[in-house]
Amino acid sequence: MKSVQDFDPEGFRAAYEELGLTQLDVANAIGVSPGTVGRWVRRRGAPSPRLFAAIAEKVGIPRSRMLRPLAEDADLAVLRTRAGLRQEDVAERLGVQASDVSEIELGAGRVRDEWVTTLSALYDVSVDQLAAAVEATATRWRASFDAKQRGVAPGR
């Protein structure tokens, strides 16, 4: 996942305008072009987890102001990007390879019990929300696997 899925352009714009900032100010603070920030505001994309984290850190906009409410069916990748983290960041905190995090987010790997507290804190969600995301990830994997077994494209 290359961008923050739950990014809220209206919340983002309102937050930087309340700070008295322009798109140019935000762009300069995080090292992108003003056109990039403009595309985010016009719903033509969303920041990557790295840039999302930079907005929160360097511009001072709380992540919660730039996100839509967490969907009930949010999966692990959504939780990670909402936290402004890359798979490499999570892997480092868990002491595993980024490919292990990728497998977990695809539903092919399993979240170990000893990771639950760390992931809950990293993603700033409750243990119950993390468990729901694990289940949503597994459900999507099973649906994709079953579709492949039947020779049908996933989602159809």
Score class of each variant (00 low, 15 high):
residue 33 S to F: 02
residue 114 E to Q: 12
residue 34 P to R: 14
residue 143 A to G: 06
residue 128 D to E: 14
residue 67 L to C: 10
residue 87 Q to P: 06
residue 69 P to G: 07
residue 29 A to V: 03
residue 13 R to M: 11
residue 121 A to P: 01
residue 140 R to Y: 02
residue 71 A to H: 08
residue 5 Q to K: 14
residue 89 D to R: 06
residue 83 A to H: 07
residue 58 K to H: 08
residue 145 F to H: 14
residue 84 G to H: 02
residue 114 E to T: 09
residue 10 E to S: 14
residue 92 E to A: 15
residue 65 R to N: 09
residue 38 G to S: 15
residue 43 R to E: 14
residue 126 S to R: 03
residue 11 G to Y: 05
residue 84 G to P: 05
residue 78 V to N: 08
residue 119 L to H: 10
residue 150 R to T: 08
residue 32 V to R: 15
residue 101 V to K: 08
residue 49 P to V: 08
residue 25 D to G: 06
residue 154 P to T: 05
residue 77 A to K: 12
residue 61 I to K: 09
residue 144 S to C: 06
residue 6 D to F: 03
residue 136 A to H: 06
residue 46 A to L: 11
residue 59 V to P: 12
residue 21 L to V: 02
residue 10 E to H: 13
residue 42 R to A: 15
residue 105 E to Y: 02
residue 98 A to V: 02
residue 22 T to H: 10
residue 17 E to Q: 14
residue 74 A to P: 14
residue 74 A to G: 11
residue 105 E to K: 03
residue 6 D to E: 13
residue 1 M to T: 11
residue 74 A to K: 08
residue 11 G to N: 10
residue 55 I to R: 02
residue 124 D to W: 01
residue 91 A to C: 02
residue 113 D to C: 00
residue 12 F to Q: 09
residue 35 G to A: 11
residue 116 V to M: 10
residue 70 L to I: 07
residue 81 T to P: 04
residue 79 L to I: 01
residue 59 V to D: 03
residue 90 V to T: 07
residue 44 R to F: 01
residue 24 L to W: 04
residue 23 Q to I: 01
residue 142 R to P: 00
residue 82 R to D: 03
residue 94 L to R: 01
residue 107 G to D: 00
residue 130 L to E: 01
residue 25 D to F: 02
residue 128 D to I: 01
residue 126 S to E: 02
residue 117 T to W: 03
residue 53 A to R: 15
residue 115 W to N: 05
residue 74 A to R: 08
residue 142 R to M: 12
residue 28 N to M: 09
residue 79 L to D: 01
residue 81 T to G: 06
residue 101 V to G: 06
residue 86 R to D: 14
residue 55 I to E: 03
residue 100 D to N: 11
residue 155 G to T: 10
residue 143 A to V: 01
residue 139 T to L: 06
residue 134 V to M: 07
residue 18 E to C: 06
residue 153 A to D: 10
residue 87 Q to R: 12
residue 54 A to G: 03
residue 121 A to Q: 11
residue 142 R to L: 15
residue 113 D to L: 10
residue 132 A to P: 04
residue 71 A to I: 00
residue 80 R to M: 08
residue 50 R to Q: 13
residue 146 D to K: 12
residue 67 L to K: 10
residue 127 V to I: 13
residue 56 A to L: 03
residue 145 F to I: 09
residue 86 R to C: 09
residue 16 Y to F: 15
residue 37 V to C: 07
residue 54 A to S: 12
residue 78 V to T: 15
residue 98 A to L: 00
residue 131 A to E: 11
residue 129 Q to Y: 01
residue 4 V to K: 12
residue 90 V to C: 09
residue 97 Q to F: 10
residue 94 L to F: 00
residue 50 R to G: 04
residue 153 A to N: 07
residue 141 W to K: 12
residue 31 G to S: 10
residue 123 Y to I: 04
residue 33 S to E: 05
residue 19 L to R: 14
residue 153 A to K: 14
residue 28 N to W: 00
residue 118 T to M: 04
residue 94 L to G: 01
residue 38 G to M: 07
residue 124 D to S: 15
residue 148 K to L: 12
residue 79 L to F: 04
residue 89 D to N: 14
residue 80 R to S: 10
residue 99 S to T: 14
residue 33 S to N: 09
residue 101 V to Q: 03
residue 27 A to T: 05
residue 117 T to C: 03
residue 62 P to M: 02
residue 81 T to W: 00
residue 8 D to K: 10
residue 38 G to I: 04
residue 108 A to I: 04
residue 37 V to E: 07
residue 146 D to F: 08
residue 117 T to M: 09
